[in-house]
Design a protein around this nucleic acid. Structure first.
Length: 261
DNA sequence: ATGGTAGCGTAGCTA
């Protein structure tokens, strides 16, 4: 089972680039972030015709997450627990039934800028809720993969120019500390352990502005965290960097892990 | 130091 995450930055604008990428990969399931669409606006039929099961959790204009899966999905859960008043669509969970059942959590963590401020407070509160949910998922003792756009640069080597991010919500100590606290519950950072001593990258996001892609001025903010039961099944992981060079690309590229499941 | 781009939705917010 090859599990992938892709922040597509708008399903309407990205239907072609997404479909092209899907046609060239054996990823299944795929979690999407920033669909920027209500559930009724998502081109569900386009993907169903290609054999995908489609589960969305959208909202008008911003945010929104989804799961595409050719394998059967069970027990779909929408929204991150812990705040009934939170109306932002940033979290979806489901069980994917392959050779084994794997619980996947697709997430779009708040950006949090400008920091400090109310948006940063919301980010940190959201991360505390994610920490609580992550602990519950670990307690299930299932293979679990929590993946998506975390909007956190874990370490200086995860940015081409770390000095320009020091005051940014993606790199401030509280954001990094909150991600570290989750990781040290017992999660494995799949992309990082592929090349644990790397001094630079791999990057998953390049801003549209200021020629960031052509200068390789990227950051690593899309992550796959694996429970111990999932990490034991891991056989391969990667970043589909070439997706950033295509026609009308997203500012993120897909990240993925293959499990013997 | 500033401005640089993109998406949604059709102004201004979000990133």
């Amino acid at each position: 089972m090859k599990i992938a995450s892709f922040n597509i930055n708008g399903i309407k604008a990205r239907i072609e680039a997404l479909s092209d990428w899907l046609a060239g990969t054996d990823a299944d399931p795929v979690v999407l972030q920033e669909i920027k669409s209500v559930d009724e606006g998502f081109p569900r039929g386009h993907f169903e015709d290609l054999g995908w099961n489609v589960e969305t959790h959208g909202q008008k204009g911003f945010n929104g997450v989804a799961i595409l899966s050719k394998l059967p999905l069970e027990d779909v859960m929408r929204g991150l627990p812990g705040d009934e008043a939170d109306e932002q669509a940033r979290y979806i969970e489901a069980t994917v039934v392959g050779e084994r059942a794997v619980r996947i959590a697709g997430l779009y963590l708040p950006n949090g800028n400008p920091a400090p401020g109310p948006k940063y407070d919301y980010k940190l509160a959201w991360m505390e809720r994610l920490r609580a949910r992550a602990a519950e998922l670990l307690a299930s003792e299932m293979p679990v993969v929590m993946l998506g756009d975390y909007n956190v640069i874990p370490e200086p080597r995860d940015a081409a120019r770390p000095e320009k991010w020091v005051d940014d919500a993606l790199f401030r100590p509280e954001s990094r500390g909150a991600l570290r606290a989750i990781r040290y519950q017992g999660w494995t950072d799949a992309i990082r352990i592929r090349d644990p001593w790397a001094t630079r990258g791999p990057f998953t996001f390049w801003d549209y502005q200021a020629g960031a892609w052509s200068k390789d001025d990227g950051i690593r903010i899309d992550h796959l965290l694996l429970s111990p039961q999932a990490a034991d099944l891991m056989v391969e992981t990667g970043v589909d960097r070439e997706a950033r060079a295509g026609e009308k690309p997203s500012d993120h590229v897909p990240v993925w892990v293959r499990l013997a499941a």
